[in-house]
């Protein structure tokens, strides 16, 4: 209980990941969906850093860095697309984006 091991961190990572998935499943607003995606990426980063620490291996931290870089570029492109969509349609509701429905 008092000795914090790898399992503690992996359980924490799973809990944060499921909170993020909960957000992805229940949100309708696309901006809130983006927030949930950030939570997913952060949860994975915690797991990578923990494995890196307990196995004395720097690879986990490297992967966490690249995940942060990907998250930053995802936000830039995604937010640009959201702004372009909002200027045209006036909302960012996920259910309204069905223009390609057959």
């Amino acid at each position: 209980m008092m000795e914090i091991g790898l399992t503690h961190y992996l359980v924490l990572s799973t809990v944060l990941f499921s909170i993020g998935l909960l957000g992805v499943m229940r949100r309708k607003n696309l901006l809130m969906l983006f927030f949930a995606t950030e939570i997913l990426l952060n949860a994975v980063n915690v797991g990578f850093a923990a494995i890196s620490h307990y196995y004395n291996d720097l690879t986990g931290q490297m992967f966490a860095f690249f995940i942060i870089a990907i998250a930053a570029s995802e936000v830039a492109v995604g937010l640009g697309l959201l702004i372009a969509w909002y200027k045209r349609h006036g909302n960012i509701n996920l259910d309204a984006m069905s223009s390609m429905r057959g």
Binding site: E74, A76, V77, G80, L81, I83
Partner: peptide, 9 residues
């Protein structure tokens, strides 16, 4: 990503 963000927004 930076160029795409500038162009889109």
């Amino acid at each position: 990503a930076m160029i795409a963000g500038i162009v889109l927004a």
